[in-house]
């Protein structure tokens, strides 16, 4: 089976993020990066799918060349080869441009299934997976928490606000992975050593012009200074009074 895991390098979720002077970009100095949390699930599911059905796992990423270290880490966890479509403008690239570039590559690769995180924890769009599938005319199941793949079709369970949907789909398909789908493995020394020898291709990303443009980036408005109402259960009446008469929410 021809399996692709699409991953994205994003700012560390524990990072403090500052808007750069000019107010249309981020101050990237001192920013650390990681593979987006949900993309770790995508790698794991791709490797498990290979273990169950055979085939090859390509790790595909769209992002800056500096992301090589994070992508090698994905190879250490079981990816067979990596392709990095180089684009330094991760911040300004819009979801349509990303989706079209990834769709073109997935088509070239002849993928049977592409795994992605349910959302990238930088731009939080949760758009690229279903957009890629739509551009390709493939099936797509989002927010998947369990998955079974057979020859040319599969069954996925998708988590929604109100419950769990069971969805049958045909291959090729894009699957976006939600927490609960699997427990991502850690890389071990053997994997890390092997990753150094695995094929790693880098080519410039072929991107369409963005439709979206940034007018302004601003830090969230600071919350008004709060106050400590007291200590222990004795403070409860003070809280009730504040919620009722000051904040007027109860």
């Amino acid at each position: 089976m021809n399996i692709v895991a699409c991953v994205k390098r994003v700012p560390n979720t524990e990072a403090v993020v500052k808007v750069a002077d000019g107010g249309t970009s981020l101050d990237e100095s001192g920013l650390s990066y990681m593979i987006s949390f949900y993309d770790e699930l995508a790698i794991e599911e791709a490797v498990r799918t290979k273990e169950a059905h055979g085939g090859e796992v390509t790790v595909l990423t769209l992002g800056p060349s500096e992301g090589t270290k994070e992508i090698r880490e994905c190879l250490a966890k079981g990816g067979d080869r990596a392709e990095l479509l180089a684009d330094s403008n991760w911040l300004s690239r819009d979801c349509r441009a990303s989706a079209k570039a990834l769709a073109a590559k997935l088509s070239d690769l002849g993928a049977d299934v592409a795994f992605m995180g349910r959302v990238a924890t930088d731009r939080d769009n949760a758009a690229v997976g279903p957009m890629v599938a739509t551009y390709l005319g493939w099936a797509c199941v989002t927010d998947v928490v369990s998955l079974e793949i057979a020859e040319d079709k599969g069954t996925a369970r998708r988590e929604t606000e109100t419950g769990i949907e069971t969805i049958e789909f045909s291959l090729p398909a894009v699957i976006t992975c939600n927490k609960g789908l699997n427990e991502p493995r850690y890389s071990n020394l053997k994997g890390i050593m092997a990753a150094k020898k695995k094929p790693f291709e880098e080519s410039p990303a072929e991107l369409v012009d963005n439709q979206a443009s940034v007018i302004a980036l601003t830090p969230p408005s600071p919350r008004a200074e709060g106050r400590i109402l007291g200590t222990g259960p004795d403070a409860v009446p003070v809280l009730i009074d504040a919620l009722r008469n000051e904040a007027k929410v109860i």
Partner: peptide, 15 residues
Amino acid sequence: PWLAGKVIADLASNA
């Protein structure tokens, strides 16, 4: 919001 609200983005579209 971007980055779960660490930054608020105002965006225009020419779609």
